[in-house]
Design a protein around this nucleic acid. Sequence first.
RNA 1: GCCCGAGUGGCGGAAUUGGUAUACGCGUUCGACUUAAAAUCGAAUGGAAACUUCCAUAUGGGUUCAAGUCCCAUCUCGGGCACCA
Length: 791
Amino acid sequence: MERYEPLKIEQKWQKKWEEEEAFKATEVEGQPKVMLAEMFPYPSGAGLHVGHVRNFTIVDVLTRFFRQQGLNVMRPFGYDTFGLPAENYAIKTGTAPQEVTAVNIANFRKQAKKLGYAIDWSREINTSDPEYYRWTQWCFLQLFKKGLAYQKESYQWWCPEDQTVLANEQVENGKCWRCGHEVEKKKMKQWFFKITEYADELLEEIDNLEWPEKIKTMQKNWIGRSVGAEIDFEVEGGAPKIRVFTTRPDTILGATFLVLAPEYAGLEYIVSDDCKDAVAKYKSDALKKSEIERQENKEKTGVFTGAYAINPATKEKIPIYIADYVLSGYGTGAIMAVPAYDERDREFAEKFDLPIVEAELIDFDAYGTPKVTYRMRDWLISRQRYWGCPIPIAYDKDGNPHAIPEDQLPVVLPEVKDYKPDKSGRSALAKAKDWLTVEIPVKDPKTGKTRMEKMTRETDTLDGYACSSWYLWRYSSPHDDKAAWNEKAISYWEPLDYYCGGDHAVAHLLYIRFWCKFFADEGHLPFREPIKRLLYNGYINAPDGKKMSKSKGNVIDPLDVIDDGYGADTLRTYEMFIGPYDMDAAWDTRSVGGVYRFLNRCYNLCFDEEGSFSPLESVRDDRSEIASEPRDDGRERSGSRVEKNTIIRHKTIKKVTEDIHRYNFNTAVAALMEYVNELYKNGASKEDLTVLAKLLKPFAPHLASEMLEKLDSDDEWPKWEEKYLVADKVELVVQVNGKLRAKFAVPVEDLEDEKKITEMVLDDERIKKYTENGIKKTIFVKKNKLINMVV
RNA sequence: GCCCGAGUGGCGGAAUUGGUAUACGCGUUCGACUUAAAAUCGAAUGGAAACUUCCAUAUGGGUUCAAGUCCCAUCUCGGGCACCA
């Protein structure tokens, strides 16, 4: 007897799919389309891990499901290749990141093919390929032209280990998200994208997305819209007015002092001479304080500036303090403190012995102007690193930035020998002397003539998130050399219908929405939201329940699972069966064996000794008596095995179809297992097996293809018919006071006759003993085939 | 501190609209095949009882003919935010 040999079968089909370019997608006007993608991976040297497999398989199950349903499906693939791991490796070993990246991509591609994914390999993209980043630079220039990419000198998070600035989203608990080193604040001139320009729309449109509530809430909190007012306070002695932001302008009568952030601009005009030293010291201490220290010690600190302001409502003189509990980057960096209504102000007031006035609330119209403020800041995008997309900017001799003309794109990353950033904090690009100088055409404002001017290139590179903020659109025309994306192609395929990932809840998913709105405004995109549905999958942990990590030695390598003989189909199906897709799950090696046994049973149903399927009735006659034995539950008592199979076949089609639509992949697999168990009991017809193979194909495409080939069938998704879902006899549940007391097999038409049912039930010995003293009422629920007698 | 999730057998988990709790898988036990083992096939498997019941969905209350599901309170775990005025 032939045994199920997954590796042999899988090789055969993978070769076939590759040769046929089986998953190539082309636009067909009028045919409904579906586009799906996972969050493209960073191709690390370690290769695919089980988390990738879960993520990619979810996309693949949906991809194949929709293909089998006759939709025009596109499922591309790509690599997010710029970033620190390759660069740090380059610094350590001198190997060019370009080289390492090429090797890692080749490995990822090979592994993804080994998993049998239905990928259109002609749509493979790579963010560090000049063919790609040429258009990342083009995107930057569009933002630059509209003033949405701008430079600003401000205090920024700086990682002393990686020698680069970090965005707010890249600082986790006061530490660098990559190396874990404590970050500090440094005043620097940096590039920003003005994401705040779109804050309102980004917030408002969240509710229209088919995204998990968790992600939507996180984005809303991140944007953090607050409605309030700005109020000006005169400063005694003629210093510039202090403008504060408050959400409670109605409490102004209780404002007994002002507090400024230590970084408050214009502080020098306010501080009195005798307080200068104390203020200067407090300010420098605050800047040195790490984020960790600020978080751990929430005890209020601050110093008096020696200056006073006038409360415009009470006309009283109130002192001005500086304190680090007021943040420079939010609102105006200054607050009116109302200790009677605000807990933090109260703490401060108590510590510094300031008055706490329980004043009445007033209508504030006379004192403030309405103002909306956001917690979200502009997106800091420059990085002092080599391995990133060069910012297409050059500086004239006065230091003014100029756009590199679009016909000079891409600005290609120059080859260097030493990848270390220099001591001044500039990236290794500063060492590429030849590359650094560039000639840019400049229009002379007086003569109107254009002349070439020598300039110096920007040595910062773009945050990797910029590269991934438009890649979904590149998929629609991945090798177009005329435009970032082709308008016709993108309007057919996009927006993306399904996006699946388990990371980047805020940053990436907010940035890509921001760029979408910008490019829609520029007339380049025909939609304002890039992603219709988001599936946010959970992590896979080690068998001990802990996170997998090399140092703990608990990593499961998916390729080992395949090569151990289980094969890709088992791995894929197991990871779908492991639990609800959006919950974390622990790897269980023994359960992998269980899924393998299931696929083996599928195989054995289809391939007997002669290598042909086992037709119903011809085999397993030894069990025919058992099979036709009436069962206790009374269901289908009269049905033949063929009739039983027909019912369960249609039930299974319905269950699997609906489960995949609901992303309940685990219960879809369970339903297939139940179906196979039934076929083992009853025997299987060709029709039974064909349906099995079709339903199995999204999960285990190689085995299913092998079965379908044997059965001489296409893979068109089967349909169920409701009429087969109703057996002629059904099981009636009888409860007394809500407790299960008996089950009856009744003809389905009897459910229409409540009186008949009631009489029959009351006449039964099992029920009689409970109802001797009479019944108060009966509740009959036809839908649930249930009757409850209340005594 | 605030905002979300979640808590069901020995284990991972089902129960989709308030209606048969524990689907499916793992593990365990027994049986068939075998000289034997593996593989495979079949049966049993929440706990106490013992032939008919009782108790079980984190804990305590409530609503209902009926609650894992709804309401109130409490505990535990996970995630997010964390001086945002």
